[in-house]
């Protein structure tokens, strides 16, 4: 498979290029962003809303009511979720007492191969997120076996649940504090809005391949 002769020839040329003998002066980065908690929430919400993310800032104990309200309003028929994460069990509990007008809950429990057709028909998928980043307005996902990668991509709507206390100033801060260099997950994602394109005459259209809507619930 790996063509060793190609590899060795390329590396030999690179070593012989003299590039390793060059001097590279250091250039300092612009000063980092430093905001307080409320300012971080505000900046993230503002930036993400500007690119059509539907942002709702809710009290931590009221987020399920907000979710139900949205589900009814938007008329989702089926909601994809991960039953083994905290938000998943909370949703199950909330749905147990009250299902009127609410979408059917569909758990992502098997490998995608057994589930693909269903997955591509899903109205909405809800996931927790690892953190937010204020500077550029993104949520950061490290998908897990309990909340797989396609949950935030294939359903027509992606609902992301973010805790306000987990918003970093910048991606640089997050990478450093969480020591990403020690080990990266299979997939890490930054998401700032719904899928979009401007490939035809710069007309902005949402939902070209991925979710048509991104709903962000910030639990404060």
């Amino acid at each position: 498979m790996s063509n060793h002769t190609a590899r060795e020839r390329i590396l030999a040329r690179l070593h012989a290029s003299g590039t390793e003998q060059t001097e590279v002066p250091d250039a300092p980065l612009p000063p980092p962003l430093s905001l307080d908690r409320d300012a971080k929430i505000e900046r993230l919400a503002e930036l993400m809303a500007a690119i059509r993310t539907e942002v709702h800032i809710v009290d931590t104990d009221a987020w399920l009511d907000k979710l139900k309200e949205l589900a009814r309003e938007k008329g989702w028929k089926r909601l994809l979720y991960g039953p083994e994460v905290p938000i998943g069990s909370a949703i199950e509990t909330a749905w147990a007492s009250d299902t009127e007008g609410l979408p059917e809950l569909v758990a992502y429990t098997g490998p995608v191969e057994t589930f693909k057709e269903d997955l591509f028909q899903m109205d909405a998928g809800i996931t927790s997120v690892r953190a937010g980043v204020a500077e550029t307005g993104v949520v950061v996902l490290w998908p897990t076996p309990h909340e797989p990668r396609l949950m935030s991509l294939v359903p027509t709507v992606h609902v992301a649940v973010l805790d306000a206390d987990t918003i970093y100033n910048s991606l640089a801060e997050m990478i450093a504090v969480e020591r990403w260099a020690d080990g990266m997950p299979t997939n890490a994602l930054l998401i700032s809005g719904p899928s979009k394109t401007a490939d035809i005459e710069f007309t902005l259209v949402f939902g070209v391949h991925g979710p048509k809507e991104l709903v962000l619930l910030i639990r404060k």
Partner: peptide, 13 residues
């Protein structure tokens, strides 16, 4: 400011 997605892949399934 940033694209919709930044996708970082470090391994197969």
């Amino acid at each position: 400011v940033i694209t919709t997605y930044v996708n970082m892949i470090s391994s197969p399934r």
